[in-house]
Nucleic acid binder design. Structure first.
Lengths: 250, 250
DNA sequence: AAAATAGTGTCTTTGAGACAGTATGAC
DNA sequence: GTCATACTGTCTCAAAGACACTATTTT
């Protein structure tokens, strides 16, 4: 598994550059950031994947993967800033919903070396188009059987963890609102909940729950186009996205 | 903040040992694991802290910190294994409740270099004593004003995040059972919930909730010593610790 | 007017809290 | 027996689901 000689500490960039013996003696893992970016595309919850290159030194050539890459210590002040940078590069989106999922680190998840990845998940509005950065092909995949598994590295389990977190949080937060344009109607919001939860919800209970939680606020404007126009809402500024209870599981 | 010369990539241990140009060109952050270890001590929720050394090259000399340290890539197969190793070294406990909290990484959290820490939180039973590993002084501190803040590095916010996660999860899981010996009575469990939540709970509602969730099971034995003996329970093997709803916040 | 979608009212059900009551062992 | 603690029963209340109803627009 590990190909590094186990005979003793090896000098590292840190020690060369900083001259700190204690820290320099530590063998450092690779550190990356990966992001599961979700959006509603074609009325389905979808995730953005990028295809890896084909070179002989590339791990997992041509496999699909979550967008991500090495933390660049000279460019990124924090790992979250690194995630935002990669998100911007891949989607052009500057202020999505972004939350850390956790970190995965082991000797064998990257064939090149011991590595740790810091995983985020992001929700972006369905009215935003994304264009490739020109470096790697990218594509939205509806979650489910259409995901081109196995993904590169351990991204299958990272994606599964992100989906689980999203679906868990949908039970007690207004996260799906972040999958919609800034202004949305209650029927649109309900539909988004139903897509993510993959089950139907009662209209009356849904409305009561959303409106009593003070997580969304009226804009005063209406959306025409269907039959009866619907009131437009937006996310409340100060809200923590929290809903008072869970949907009852019947 | 950063003292590394920004003039270009610097060679690293990885490249020396493995000869991979692409990976070798990456400047690697320090990678550590820190653990917030909670237990009930003297009827109060407490956290185990260690005191840092005094040497002139030591960051944050004599400050208290969460137990932790560098990931040792030759010893640890995964970051979770690293957390378990450190937990064993500090407490002698082999199978506590252990959960990842997340990762924090930035240029300025460690004065020695850009660093990423992977944070876990652990719950250990109140009947287990802990002895120091002899390397550093360690001590249980009740959470609250007794915590010797400021802690080293960014451990104040790490501890705050761990406390928040614990208190949040206590609302909808049986986590406090992991703070008790393997066999416990319902009044003891209720008391533990009350200590963590810092509020009193109704006895009848508490019992109904615990027993209907199938998260604990009777042992058939009783604990004597008080007045009427109480039935002893243990955590159910297969349970995911999940309770059906939250305590109502009145 | 008809159709379709937005939104409301009312009844039922579920489950948690309040709190009084009963059970059982120590002394 | 008395006392303290373990445990249960019953009532109330809050909130979510079911579902029928009304409202407002387009055609």
């Amino acid at each position: 598994m590990k190909k590094i000689s186990p005979s003793g500490p090896v000098d590292t960039a840190g020690s060369v550059a900083k001259g700190n013996k204690l820290v320099g003696a530590i063998i450092r893992p690779l550190v990356t950031v990966d992001i599961a970016i979700f959006s509603i595309r074609n009325d389905a919850l979808s995730v953005l994947l990028v295809q890896r290159g084909e070179g002989p030194e590339e791990p997992f050539p041509l496999r699909w993967a979550l967008p991500g890459g090495f933390v660049h210590v000279q460019m990124d002040a924090t790992i979250e800033a690194c995630a935002r940078r990669k998100l911007l590069e891949k989607t052009g989106v500057t202020s999505p919903y972004l939350e850390q999922l956790g970190s995965w680190g082991s000797a064998d998840r990257d064939p090149r070396d011991w590595s740790v990845t810091n995983v985020y998940f992001a929700l972006i509005a369905s009215d935003l188009s994304t264009q490739s950065d020109g470096i790697a092909p990218q594509q939205w995949f509806p979650v489910g059987d259409a995901i081109p598994r196995p993904l590169a590295f351990d991204h299958d389990r990272l994606l599964d963890a992100a989906l689980k977190r999203l679906r868990d949080k949908v039970e007690y937060t207004v996260l799906p609102a972040s999958l919609l344009p800034v202004e949305f109607t209650l029927p649109e919001l309900q539909r988004t909940f139903e897509i993510v939860l993959n089950r139907e919800l009662d209209k009356s209970a849904f409305r009561t729950r959303m409106l009593s939680a003070n997580v969304i606020e009226e804009t005063g404007r209406y959306r025409s186009g269907s039959r009866r126009p619907a009131l437009l809402y937006r996310l409340a500024e100060d809200s923590a996205h929290q809903l008072p209870a869970t949907f009852r599981k019947n």
